[in-house]
């Protein structure tokens, strides 16, 4: 039955296998897609910022997943912490980006008395 379901549902195998890099990637992908959807669908600017956080963290999950020792080459001389370091940088940059974006949002609110991104079309060509 497993084989039937496995052949009918894509990626069904993931449910039957032990947790591996692929599972992390799936989580990252879900996070990413949720973030993008959040950015695209939310009209509230703060919601959009949250979407951005999700996208960035989806990427972070990927970085960390790809840093798995199982994927390291045989003769690798690195510490194996590249992904984690990248993730730290991304977190750092996300914090900075959030600060800037919040400042922009606040400014926008001051000018338009709303945080609805659909009302923000000042950059319309």
């Amino acid at each position: 039955m497993n084989s039937v379901v496995a052949s009918a549902v894509p990626l069904f195998g993931l449910f039957t296998e032990p947790v591996s890099v692929a599972h992390y990637l799936v989580v990252g992908a879900i996070l990413f897609v949720s973030g993008v959807a959040c950015m695209a669908l939310k009209r509230n600017a703060l919601g959009v910022l949250m979407g951005i956080e999700l996208v960035l963290n989806g990427a972070n999950v990927n970085f960390v997943a790809f840093a798995s020792p199982y994927l390291q080459g045989e003769g690798s001389r690195s510490l194996g912490l590249d992904g984690q370091v990248f993730a730290l940088f991304v977190i750092l940059l996300a914090a900075a980006e959030a600060a800037v974006a919040l400042a922009i949002t606040l400014n926008f609110y001051n000018n338009h008395a709303t945080v609805d991104v659909d009302r923000a079309d000042d950059l319309k060509g």
């Binding site: 695209a40 959009v48 079309d121 000042d122 950059l123 319309k124 060509g125």
Partner: peptide
């Protein structure tokens, strides 16, 4: 013509990017 693409709508941009 190309100017019309520049709608200024953030959500649309995100859609385009995606």
């Amino acid at each position: 013509e190309l100017k019309k693409l520049q709608t200024g709508s953030l959500r649309q941009y995100v859609m385009f990017i995606a």
